[in-house]
Simulated scan of single mutants.
Amino acid sequence: MELNRVLPELRGPMKRAQVSMPRWLVRIAVRLLIVPRSEAVRVTRARAGAATVRVYVPTGARGGGGLLWIHGGGLLFGDAKQDEALCLSTAERLGLVVVSANYRFAPEHPFPAAHDDVRGAWHWFLDHADELGVDPRRIVVGGESAGGGLAAALVQRLHDDGGVQPCGQWLFAPMLDDRTAARRELDAERHFVWDNEANREGWSGYLGTSPGADAVPAYAAPARRTDLSGLPPAFLTWGDIELFAAEDRAYAEALRGAGVPVTTDVVEGAPHGFENWARTTPAARALLDRAQEWLRAATA
Results as ranks from 00 to 15, higher is better:
Leu3Asn: 07
Asp240Cys: 02
Val193Asp: 00
Leu132Thr: 03
Glu108Pro: 09
Gly212His: 06
Glu108Arg: 15
Glu253Asn: 03
Pro58Trp: 00
Glu2Arg: 12
Leu158Gln: 10
Ala188His: 07
Trp124Pro: 08
Arg37Glu: 11
Gly133Ser: 11
Pro174His: 05
Arg47Asp: 14
Pro261Cys: 01
Val98Ser: 06
Leu154Tyr: 05
Glu39Ile: 11
His123Val: 02
Val260Thr: 11
Ala80Lys: 10
Gly142His: 06
Glu131Trp: 04
Arg5Lys: 14
Glu242His: 09
His115Thr: 10
Ala254His: 08
Thr226Leu: 06
Phe77Thr: 15
Thr299Ser: 06
Leu171Cys: 02
Asp130Gly: 14
Glu144Met: 14
Asp135Tyr: 01
Glu268Asn: 15
Arg285Thr: 13
Gly202Tyr: 03
Gln169Ile: 08
Thr264Ala: 00
Gly168Ala: 07
Glu84Val: 13
Ser204Ala: 09
Ala278Glu: 04
Arg27Asp: 01
Pro211Lys: 06
Leu25Glu: 15
Ala258Val: 07
Gly239His: 06
Gln292Ser: 02
Pro211Asn: 07
Glu268Gln: 14
Ala215Lys: 05
Gly259Val: 12
Leu75Gln: 10
Ala234Ser: 13
Lys15Arg: 15
Val26Trp: 08
Pro110Glu: 05
Pro112Ala: 02
Gly78Phe: 11
Tyr219Cys: 02
Gly269Ala: 09
Ala252Leu: 02
Gly162Ala: 05
Ala182Met: 07
Tyr56Trp: 05
Val26Gly: 04
